[in-house]
Design a protein around this nucleic acid. Structure first.
Lengths: 338, 338
DNA sequence: GCTGGCACTCGCGCGCACAGAGTGCCAGGA
DNA sequence: TCCTGGCACTCTGTGCGCGCGAGTGCCAGC
């Protein structure tokens, strides 16, 4: 167990290193923080911290820098979440209030988060897993061609083209539309398959093939849309990453383009509360030198999606966590209103 | 006027520099290209080319590198477009064929283009300016709340929430929906305002306010959607940009996040045929060290949007132009089919 | 108008020495 | 038992000088 003072030393090291980006030595520490002890004592503490794996030296006879384990302890025990100031909160609210539709909300959120944290922001579109169907629209484009439009209660709209096996009359289409909506409007995605299972039986034999095709397209859409899309922004902030640049930044850019990777990353984070994944805690190798701070957000109490930022392990955790939490809260409000 | 041989020398310099990324000297030139003359002669030619501003020396007594003006001449006069090979064309087609909807088409196109050119790809969503309305759908969500869904013939779907000034009955809504569609379905965006101008008059006084609100939201949507969205990809390729990295890459990443800048960039390019903007020819300052190769694409003959790549001025122009042209052609085909 | 020769320039890489920061360890004191 | 000042040691980063090599411009000759 580490003594109280050693924890303070670790906290000081993290804070200094985040600020200066340079390994911090014992002398500098005692100068900048009033620890009440001499450099020599600090040196002993540092040696102990290094033995425990919380800090490391890049080279012999350089200062110390925190390890992933050190940051972990810092985040868990030594630092809180720094709340946003009043004016900051006001600004967040104002910025998000002007959004006109879902795309706009997500777009603004990304920009805002990137600007506040000066890091890369990732925002997942509100999830459809817990969503319900608001309306299904069917439009006849050609005798054997139907457009399927799905509208969800989160305000999302998806459309698919359906090629029918046989021509499909306008009246049959209207019939199908009406039956479909009366059955599944307001129901959850997961329940849809059962609810429409016996629908084809209500139609003439010649139309059954088409009905089945339309239904399976609908189901595909539901499944596909359950897999989430996301938006990222603030990639220019990657340039502030470090000095050894090209090598560090490349895998990160690659990871950011792989939506699958990012979705997994957000998905792995706990469902409630804020999650901080530090360095090697990230499963994806390219992000081993980064930390991911993420949190769920949603209208009402339930989280429907996640958002977060990706930055260097050497980041201002309290500030970043504060910004992420605040933004998530306000986005939730906006979504609840619309 | 430059002699034939000097043009050849310029061509050789561009090709070598693009390959090696290093200033190219007279001796290396005569070794790698069979110009049939000695290094001394090439030196004279190079001096002449430098006087004319086609090439420059980074430092005294280093090799020469092409200037923007040099690349311009190279692209205009000295190099053609390198066509894709058969297998490459096949691969492009296969890759694009699996797309399920518009988002998917654009997404695949971006990835494909980035991979083929190993540069940053930018694809504009098919434009709505020349588009027609396929269908307008109105859904009642609450007594005084309507969802407006617009479907275009390019397969795009946009929705907006409308808060009505007064409650709006289901039958009035159906009436409005029917009238709207009979008037504007199949018509061009630009014609819509006139066509619906006198619609409110057909309704009871109590509903007129709502009808007007719905119509103005529709018009807003049309205008907004005429301003295009776009998708980018392959940003990881920026890491191959140069050695002086952080300084070069930062403004580029910033530019890429500013959709307005990119749209302007694509918009400025000529409406038909391929456009190459080299270095300082780009209006936006952050892209002064990059070249942009863009071309319009669309279903049928008409171009409905643009796509292109952003890369270092030192790029393989013939190859890049070939890839861009080929991809644009196949995307056009895919869009025409769907 | 092309060629070979020659002197000149300049950036780059290498070796070296030095300063500075930081460490570990130890003996002495509260 | 724990803290402190002192001391020797170890590195890294930096500045300087130097030589090499690539490349140039110019000139006289063919």
């Amino acid at each position: 167990m580490l003594s109280e003072r050693r924890l303070q030393v670790l906290r000081a090291i993290v804070q200094d290193y985040v600020g200066t980006e340079e390994p911090v030595g014992s002398k500098a520490l005692t100068e900048r923080h009033s620890l009440g002890v001499s450099p020599a004592t600090v040196r002993n503490d540092m040696a102990a911290l290094e033995d425990e794996g919380y800090i490391a030296q890049p080279h012999t006879s350089a200062g110390r820098i925190p390890t992933d384990k050190g940051y972990r302890l810092f985040v868990d025990k030594l630092a809180g979440v720094k709340p946003m100031t009043g004016p900051e909160r006001k600004a967040i609210q104002n910025f998000l209030d002007g959004a006109v539709d879902l795309d706009d909300v997500v777009g603004r959120t990304v920009r805002l988060l990137a600007q506040l944290t000066r890091q890369v922001a990732v925002v997942q579109y509100p999830s459809l897993t817990r969503s319900t169907v608001r309306h299904v629209e069917l439009l006849s484009l050609a005798p054997a061609r139907v457009m399927l439009v799905l509208i969800t209660d989160t305000g999302r709209v998806e459309q698919r083209m359906v090629d029918c096996p046989a021509p499909f009359g306008e009246s049959s289409l209207a019939d199908l539309r009406a039956r479909l909506n009366s059955r599944i409007a307001g129901r959850r995605f997961a329940d849809v398959p059962q609810l429409v299972q016996d629908l084809p039986e209500a139609f003439e034999a010649e139309d059954r093939g088409t009905v089945t095709t339309v239904l399976s397209t609908l189901m595909e859409t539901l499944v596909e849309e359950t897999e989430e899309r996301l938006m990222i922004g603030g990639t220019a902030n990657l340039t502030r990453f470090g000095h050894d640049f090209p090598l560090t930044i490349r895998p990160i850019l690659e990871a950011l383009e792989e939506q699958v990777v990012l979705l997994k990353l957000l998905g792995e984070a706990g469902d409630s509360g804020m999650t901080v994944r530090i360095g090697h805690e990230n499963a994806y190798e390219g992000l081993n030198s980064t930390s991911v701070v993420s949190v769920g957000y949603g209208s009402g109490g339930e989280a429907v999606a996640k958002l977060g930022v990706v930055g260097p392990t050497r980041m201002d955790y309290p500030g970043t966590m504060g910004a992420v939490r605040a933004v998530a809260r306000y986005v939730g409000q906006i979504l609840a209103e619309s």
